[in-house]
Design a protein around this nucleic acid. Sequence first.
DNA 1: CGTTCGGGCTGGATCGTTCTAGGTCTGCCT
DNA 2: AGGCAGACCTAGAACGATCCAGCCCGAACG
Lengths: 311, 311
Amino acid sequence: MADVAARAGVSRALVSIVLRGAPGASPANRERVLRAAAELDYHPDHRARLLRSARTRTLGVVHALHRPFHAELVEALYGAVEGTGWRLALEPSAGSRPERAAVRALLDLRCEAVLLVGPALPRADLAELAGRVPLVVLARALRGVAADVVRTDDEAGARAAVEHLLGLGHERVAHLDGGRAPGAAERRRGVRAALTAAGLPVTLLPGGLTDADGVRAAPAVLAPGGPGAVLAFNDACAAGLLAAARAAGRDVPADLSVVGYDDSAVAALSTVALTTVGGGGGGGGGRRRRAARRPPGARAAPAPPPPAGAG
Amino acid sequence: MADVAARAGVSRALVSIVLRGAPGASPANRERVLRAAAELDYHPDHRARLLRSARTRTLGVVHALHRPFHAELVEALYGAVEGTGWRLALEPSAGSRPERAAVRALLDLRCEAVLLVGPALPRADLAELAGRVPLVVLARALRGVAADVVRTDDEAGARAAVEHLLGLGHERVAHLDGGRAPGAAERRRGVRAALTAAGLPVTLLPGGLTDADGVRAAPAVLAPGGPGAVLAFNDACAAGLLAAARAAGRDVPADLSVVGYDDSAVAALSTVALTTVGGGGGGGGGRRRRAARRPPGARAAPAPPPPAGAG
DNA sequence: CGTTCGGGCTGGATCGTTCTAGGTCTGCCT
DNA sequence: AGGCAGACCTAGAACGATCCAGCCCGAACG
């Protein structure tokens, strides 16, 4: 930096002003400094910058590497911070690297807030973390903790999916449920609400999270007198059921309607082409505001969009 | 830090020594400092630490968020640095965030080396980057650039896969090739080598990278007089072919053998259960050394393991 | 007994920025 | 002419750690 200042014939402070784009430098000097910096191929040291300025304008993000859905969320986050002057610091949690370590690393970087994507940490840990730093929890239900929670409204999503099936004329609709998985209870509730509202019986079959679970559930679904339509807990489970049904000679969707959940990459595979329930896409639109401490239990829960797809 | 020093009744320098785990502090003081730090819930500021010490001991990693294979590699990287005192700084490249920006961010952090996972950057950019910082390129072929390259030996992998099929007694083996995709030429070469060595004809069919490509190739494969075994360019393509073949009533693997490539998550889906060519797993085993500048064209190319799976 | 040695500890400089307080100059108003 | 505002710029003090040179002191040595 001193070299640039010397070359441009100004002080280091002025170089700082120019390179930050801060007001208070004459056009002539601004130009001179920029040229000198370019000629010397000078780029400010991010570490020093962060250290000196009180605000780090950095958001810490913890995500599980192996979860495609998390990756999609993180990608959307990058789109969201773009042009705001904020930076994201990514810390993955993997098998060899527990979430706790990732969070610790972010705190050591003095992030101004932490976003946790689908954290598996116990509630108590999250509560404690929320006490230290503004905290946003994505894709996980969490009540009674002083953190912002952003997640899909699973109950409404499941209800919408069932109503979609009812709209197609189905009367025997079953749900392959997710057991104790996060969101499973809400989705069951949504299914139950939609079916009882329509005066139809509620059929819950044990499903699961993986495509193997979907295959395992196939006999019950395909048995004589079985349902004509199924809402699976998620896309993987739906894909498993779909494959098993086709292997058994059934024509989907003619003989059986299958709907997934999550709008994941699996559903988009051309050989699967699943109807699924999405979360609304990561694009523009959404309101943006600074993450800030909020009263316990506060949450933002966008309504799910209508189902879309062909299956 | 000053607070901790005061509380423990020692100097700041000694606190630094203790917390770094450096030699030169008496057990008594070490204990005292650690207790004081714990009581004050003090954690050293990573930014300041990095700034002062000449070595940042940080490796920058750029990866594409949406590629599951990249995620697996990154996960393995975390396993590899664990306990070495090195840190990884992750910078994703996504649609809204070109690789160039990710690299820039890493350089501004003063990483000591940069790892690029499957970079799409033009060769010239990579060459220039390699001139500034020790560079490792993963999962991409690259010659004539002063960077370390780590990738699978596609030619040997494809040859091994074909030999596996020949070992099963197949004589009409086709390859759904990847066109101009990275690695496609090498895999073609491997197929050709294995088949000509066995005195068999070489059948190349246009394939592709997606499962839709696999579906599209199905008619040619399933036509009368078609091959009895197929090596697809990758798992997605193989999965597409598999689905199409089954939909056409073929029994895989009785009527047709299909082998994928990459050992990706798709292949592990129970409904796919594909034979595939893996890269050797991310676990222990591998030799570790410091990334360092090497002569142009140097590379480490581990031989592929034998195929495994059931399809 | 004087010297050396080395472990333990400390003060102060330092890393590369940004921030604060102030300094200079010009032009305009009274 | 004096005062004042505002634009532009600068010196030097932070930020929070690590590194360096050197001090102190008891033990070992000749």
